[in-house]
């Protein structure tokens, strides 16, 4: 990959990831985040939410997977997001997280790419300024 010529704006990875209540339960166990707003509608509604939400960190963790598939987990040097829109997950069915990853900047000297993620559910962007710095050296 070192000899690839990277173009700003080029799509380097993309993917669609279903998220349902089972996904949330698995993530709660794997991460240790047992905030009940991620598994109980009554608790979520009592604090003014429409219902159970996906963990922000689940959305963040899934959204980077196309980049991980392309460059490898070990290549990720920095990763940051803003949680701009909550992701409600209905009890039946679920939602789909659509991710597109484009080259945002190339730093040849450092041997890194900044990859910018667009992360949306039903066409609505849910993460802001989602940027991954990956090593390409």
């Amino acid at each position: 990959m070192t000899d690839a010529a990277w173009t700003v704006g080029e799509v380097v990875a993309a993917g669609s990831f279903p998220i349902d209540r089972e996904t949330l339960v698995r993530y709660a166990g794997a991460s240790g985040d047992f905030n009940p707003i991620h598994y109980r509608d009554d608790v979520a509604q009592s604090v003014g939410l429409p219902g159970v939400l996906a963990h922000g960190m689940l959305t963040m963790g899934v959204a980077v997977q196309p980049v991980v598939e392309r460059f490898g987990a070990a290549a990720v040097k920095q990763y940051g997001v803003r949680f701009t829109k909550p992701v409600p997950v209905p009890p039946a069915g679920g939602v789909v997280l659509d991710v597109t990853a484009k080259v945002g900047a190339v730093d040849e000297a450092a041997g890194t790419l900044r990859v910018d993620l667009t992360v949306a559910v039903d066409g609505a962007v849910v993460l802001g300024r989602a940027q991954v710095v990956v090593g390409i050296g």
Partner: peptide, 14 residues
């Protein structure tokens, strides 16, 4: 491995 599966990773190194 549990965490990797929970976020949908398919990376063999994980």
């Amino acid at each position: 491995r549990e965490f990797a599966r929970a976020v949908g990773s398919t990376d063999p190194v994980s």
